[in-house]
């Protein structure tokens, strides 16, 4: 009975996160449009696009791995969700989090990307292959500052459990990692820019460069799955950063507000700065952010 209830709440949480992800991307697109003096899309346009993609009548397949690519990507997104505590202090909204979930989540973030690489590779489109190799190269560089930041806060709180890290930050802003370990926060927030794929690091998916990179061959339901995953992933990654650095959330209202603000940080930077090429972004990521990450660890050890 306990388990059934638990699974019910996990599914409900997934449903809320998915819808918040779709609405959030609509709101963000609207804000970007207003910045450009346009009316912009309808807020519910992401839903319509999703329904449209699921309603395409014919699909082309290139083989088994081509099918599995989006599935792997989706399981990467849902995998992160499954082990992420959403609301602090609530047994039911903490999903399947356990001691050590932080490592598993870092693994799942890469897992989806790899599955996508295999699928897009089998698509046979040269642009997919170029896109995926650039994407993986950049993603590896993006992971490095984040990993250093995670090591730093693992040393700081002496745990790898997200729930315990959130618990240690309760009691006001002065306890947030943002204040207690600013170097780790800065390194991780730079890495967040890359993970969200907005401007300085958006070259992988940029329509102007090579036709949209990895998903070039994906259409219809395949693309629908990728879009579903994107909606989940954007929110859940923002929730991860919120949990690690900004004190977590004690109810859904705070979760929605904080995840929006964390996500908006990447949109804000994306609107202000132009795009890096891959050969510029990787060296940039490997210099300053990595240095900040190392300082964050060194300060704790000394």
């Amino acid at each position: 009975m306990e388990l059934v209830k638990k699974i019910g709440f996990v599914l409900l949480g997934l449903f809320i996160i998915l819808n918040w992800g779709l609405i959030m991307s609509g709101i963000i697109r609207k804000i970007i449009a207003r910045l450009g003096m346009r009316r912009g899309i309808k807020v519910f346009q992401p839903y319509i696009n999703l329904i449209k993609n699921y309603s395409i009548r014919s699909q082309i397949s290139h083989g088994v791995m081509f099918y599995l690519g989006p599935v792997f990507r989706l399981s990467g997104g849902i995998g992160i969700f499954l082990f992420m505590p959403l609301i602090h202090g609530s047994e039911l909204w903490s999903n399947f989090s356990f001691t050590g979930d932080l490592i598993l989540i870092a693994y799942f973030a890469f897992f989806g990307m790899l599955g996508m690489a295999l699928g897009a590779g089998e698509g046979g489109h040269p642009y997919s292959a170029i896109g995926i190799s650039r994407g993986l190269a950049q993603f590896t560089a993006i992971e490095l500052p984040l990993t250093l930041a995670i090591i730093s806060i693992a040393i700081q709180y002496n745990t790898l459990s997200i729930s315990e890290i959130v618990a240690a930050q309760q009691g006001g802003i002065q306890n947030w990692t943002l204040v207690t370990n600013p170097f780790a926060t800065v390194a991780a927030m730079i890495s967040f820019l890359g993970a969200m794929g907005h401007s300085p690091f958006s070259v992988v998916m940029a329509p102007q460069e090579i036709p949209i990179g990895p998903p070039t061959e994906y259409h219809g339901t395949f693309l629908g799955i990728l879009q579903t995953n994107r909606a989940i992933l954007h929110v859940i990654e923002a929730v991860l950063y919120m949990n690690l650095f900004f004190g977590g959330a004690t109810n859904w209202g705070i979760l929605i507000l904080k995840s929006f603000l964390v996500y908006f940080w990447s949109v804000f930077v994306g609107m202000v700065f132009p795009r890096f090429r891959v050969d510029q972004s990787i060296p940039w990521l490997l210099k300053l952010p990595v240095l900040i990450g190392i300082i964050a660890i060194a300060l704790l050890i000394i």
Binding site: R38, R39, G40, I41, K42, I48, P211
Partner: peptide, 10 residues
């Protein structure tokens, strides 16, 4: 965009 029209490169 306000009519739901968008460009796709593929």
């Amino acid at each position: 965009y306000r009519f739901g029209v968008a460009m796709r490169p593929t």
